[in-house]
Design a protein around this nucleic acid. Structure first.
Lengths: 182, 182, 182, 182
DNA sequence: CACTAAACGAGACGGTACGTCGCGTCTTTCT
DNA sequence: AGAAAGACGCGACGTACCGTCTCGTTTAGTG
C-alpha cells in the first residue's frame, strides 16, 4: 500500500487523490479510509516509511557539523517530496493536531540527535542554552524551506553563507577571516 | 469584488472556492475567471490590496533594526492570513511561475527597503555583501514561517533570541555581553 | 434469527440490508449467507414463519365465501408486510426461479384450500371449470394488490363491489337484485 | 437523454443505476440529479415518452371492448418494460407521493378513455355506477399484473376466460352460452 | 474425557454505486 | 457588448453495502 502511495506523492499533495491511491494500490477506497482518517496522516506515514531522516554525524568540529546540518536540510527539503508536501499540508495540520503530532514524531528522532550534537558542540566551545539549539534547527530548516517556497534554489554557495552566518559568531575570536563570507 | 474575497480568505486557502467568491461578490463565476486565470493569482492580488508590506523604519542601530525586522516577520506570518495562505500556495506557485512572480513583486518593495536598510547598516558596521542581506531576510522570514508550519508560536522571547543570533556576530567586538543570549 | 428479520422487514424490502439483519440478529454476515443464498429467499422464509396464510372457512354460501376471500386478500396485502414486499421482489423472483417456487409453495396450501372451496361451490351451484377458479383467485388478489400499488385503499365498500362483480354472474337467475350493486 | 434511459430500463429497475444512465447518455451525474430528484421519477417520465398508453377503440359491443381492454392490459404489462418496472417501484412510490401522482397522470388519459368507454357501454346495456368502472379497470390490470408477478403468463385463453368472467353477468339473459367459458 | 472439526461472531477486504460538491467551460438572458 | 446567472461534462469526495474471505472462539460429536 505504502509503496504505491509514495509514487503518487510525486504528482504533488494537492493533486493526490485518495481514489487514485486506492486504485494504484489495487485496494478498495474504504480500506484506505479504514486505516487513515485523513490524507495528511496517510501521506506522513507513507513518507516516514520512505524517507530516512537521520541525524547528522558529528565530526567534532562545529563548522563542519553545521554545514552538514545545512546540507541535510537542503537535501531533505529540495530533493525529497517532503519539501514539496510539507507546506501544502499546512492547513490540514492546522485542522488536525494529531496529524501534526505524527509529523513531529516522525521528524523527532533526527531532530533530537541534531540537538544533542549542538549541545555537545556547546560543551566544547560556546553554544550555551536550551532553546537556542531548537531555534537554530528551525532556522536552518526554515531558511531552506522558505527559499524553496519562493522558488529560490539553495546552492552550495548559499549553504556556505548560511553556515558562516550561524557559525561565525561562535568561532574563536582570532581568525577574523569569516568577515568576507558572512 | 476584492473586498469580499479577503473575507473568504478567512476560511483558508484550500477551502476557498471560486464559486463561493463569486457568490459572495454577487458576480458571475465567469467574470472572476475573466480577470484572474487562477485562484493563486486572485488571492495574491487580493492580499496585496489588503495587506501593507512595508519596509521597517530604520533607527540607525543594527540590533534594533533587526529586531524590528523579526517582529515584522512574525506579524506578517502569524497574524495576517498571508502566513496561512503562503505555504498552501506552494504547489500552485510551482505550477504557475507568473503567480510566483506576482507574489514576489508584491513582497518586493518591502524587501528592497529592508535590503537597503541592511546595506546601510553594512556600510556603518560590518555587513558586507549582496547575497548576504538577501539570505538574511530569507532566514528571518523562513524561521518564523517554519515555526508556524509546525505549530510553534514565535513569542517575543523567541524574537529576542533570533535577533541576538543574527546580530551577535556582527556587533562590535567589545561588548561580549551577547554571549549569554546567542 | 427470523424474529429479527421480520422486524427489519418493517423498513421495507429495498432498504433491508443483509448487513443490518446480521447485526440485529447478533450474527455474522457469513452465517446468513450460509443458509440463504439470497435476500429474497430469506425474506420469503421469514414471512412464512410469521404469517399464516390459511384458506378461508366455507360457510356453504357462495357470496359469503367470496366475500371472505376478498377480505382475506385485503388483509394479507394491505395489513401484512407481504403486500409491501411482494411487488418489490418482482425482479428478484424473475432472476431466481427457486425463490419464486419457494414463494408459491408458501402461498400454495391456502390457495389449494380456497380452490377446493370454489370447486365445492361449483358443485353446488354453477362454477364449472378448472382454470376458472385459479384465475378467479388471481383476480381477487391481483385487484387488491394492484390498488395497493397505486395507493388506492380497498375499503369494505370496495370489497362489497368486488364480491358482487364476481358472484353476480353465478347467482340463481331469479333474484335480479344484484343489478344495482355490480 | 431519455432515449438512452429506456434502453437502460431493459436491465431492470433495480439494476438500473443513475451512474450508468449518465454514462450512457454522455452526461454528468449531477445533470441527471438536477432534473429528476429520484430514480422513480426519471423512469416514469422516460417511460411516458416511450410508451403510448392509449384508450382502446370502442366497437360498440361490450364483449369485444372488454376483450380489447384485457388484451391491452396484457400487452402493457407483459410486453413493455412497464410491467417489470411498476412493481419494483412500489416502495419508491410509497415514499414519494409525487412520483405516484406522476405515474397516475401518465396512466390517466388512457384510463379516462377506457372509463368513458365503459360508461357508454353502461348506457347501452347494464353497466351502472361510478366506482364500478374504476374498479373494473383495476381488476383487469391487477389480474394481469399479479399473474406476471408470480410468473404466470397470460395467454389468449386466459384473456378469453377473464373477458367472459367480466362480461358474463351483464350479457343479455338469453344466450346462456357463457357457461362453457366462465 | 479429551480432541478435533464444524459452525460461529466478528469484521477486513476489493468493489460498485450512492448523492454532493466544486471545477472550468459554455450558453442564455438581460441590461 | 458585457455581465449575472447558472447549466453542463467531469471527476473526486466520503459513505453504505455488496458478497467473499480470513480469523480466533465456542460447541458439539466422536474416538
Amino acid at each position: 500500500v505504502d509503496a504505491t502511495v509514495d509514487l503518487l506523492t510525486d504528482v504533488g499533495y494537492h493533486r493526490l487523490t485518495i481514489e487514485s491511491i486506492a486504485a494504484r494500490a489495487g485496494v478498495g477506497k474504504a480500506t484506505v479510509y479504514r486505516w487513515w482518517p485523513t490524507k495528511a496522516r496517510l501521506v506522513i506515514e507513507s513518507l516516514s516509511h520512505r524517507i530516512e531522516v537521520t541525524p547528522v554525524k558529528t565530526t567534532g568540529e562545529l563548522r563542519a557539523d553545521v554545514r552538514a546540518l545545512v546540507d541535510a536540510a537542503i537535501e531533505l527539503f529540495t530533493e525529497s517530496p517532503l519539501g514539496a508536501a510539507m507546506p501544502e499540508m499546512a492547513s490540514d495540520l492546522d485542522a488536525d493536531p494529531e496529524a501534526r503530532e505524527q509529523l513531529l514524531s516522525f521528524l523527532g528522532p533526527a531532530r533530537a540527535g541534531n540537538l544533542s550534537l549542538l549541545y555537545r558542540a556547546a560543551g566544547r566551545t560556546d553554544l550555551p542554552h536550551d532553546v537556542d539549539a531548537d531555534l537554530l534547527l528551525d532556522l536552518i530548516c526554515g531558511t531552506v524551506l522558505y527559499r524553496r517556497l519562493l522558488g529560490r534554489r539553495s546552492s552550495s554557495a548559499i549553504a556556505d553563507q548560511l553556515t558562516e552566518m550561524i557559525v561565525g559568531r561562535h568561532l574563536p575570536r582570532t581568525s577574523e577571516g569569516v568577515g568576507p563570507t558572512a
